[in-house]
Design a protein around this nucleic acid. Structure first.
Lengths: 125, 125
DNA sequence: AATAACGCTAACTTTTATGTTAGTACTTCT
DNA sequence: AGAAGTACTAACATAAAAGTTAGCGTTATT
């Protein structure tokens, strides 16, 4: 008997983002999603509560922040720690795995910030 | 007379992706867009023609590939070179600027490929 | 006594992203 | 002669992402 394989196209393949059905594609999408990137960067700077994150990341809605956090938590990048008090107190932080990706993501973001002036579509005269 | 400023919130600020109106946000979105990431990685490997790119990147439609290439070209990351022959021959490559971002982006993608097994949402037992 | 803060979720709407189909004009392959 | 390849674009349709509003129960603040 063979080991169960997810989809035929993946049989015997190493993970490759160029292959549409490869799970790495989905993880990549979570990480590079509009708010995913920013959440990872924010948490890299410091552990934060839900509302602190919301204030830190300009323009996120509560809904999107909650959703993004859940996705990243499911991927094992973000850790959620809730204290059973009232009013609620919940802290979000990066897992060791999360710190690794966050490093890559923030490298990219900081490169863009630092090189904005070299980008034609942005450069004003 | 003062120098023209884009938006009030940006006056006197260094580029910061956490600020919703900062142009770095938009560039970040282009680069981390679903197909933007993959185009940059593909072109990092080699210069390619439109249809070669399309075959290389699993799942892109012609429309999305064309649109993504135009956006990245406007940002100065991708260079388009067309030969006036028939049938048409168009080559896409990375600009020096593009190679820099592509480096960051492929670091991220390759990290994900290499660490897929550590990611709970993917890991099978 | 009314308000804001906390961390959400559900239901609904809008916007954006992405896909589909068809068409272009010419050439090479079958 | 008919089909396929080339690099696209326009128009249209759909799906996915994101936003909006309202509400939960309790507490501290005003």
């Amino acid at each position: 008997m063979s080991i169960q394989a997810p989809i035929e196209a993946l049989r015997g393949h190493e993970p490759d983002v160029m292959i549409a059905a490869c799970p790495s594609r989905q993880v990549l999408n979570h990480v590079t999603s509009r708010w995913g990137v920013l959440v990872l960067i924010a948490l890299q700077e410091q552990t934060m509560r839900f509302s602190a994150l919301r204030r830190h990341i300009g323009g996120v809605s509560e809904r999107m922040l909650a959703q993004t956090l859940q996705t990243l938590e499911a991927d094992g990048f973000v850790q959620r720690r809730a204290y059973e008090v009232v009013p609620p107190h919940v802290e979000y932080s990066l897992s060791p795995l999360g710190e690794e990706v966050a490093g890559k993501v923030s490298d990219l973001a900081h490169w863009i910030e630092a090189n904005l002036g070299r980008i034609p579509s942005v450069a004003k005269d």
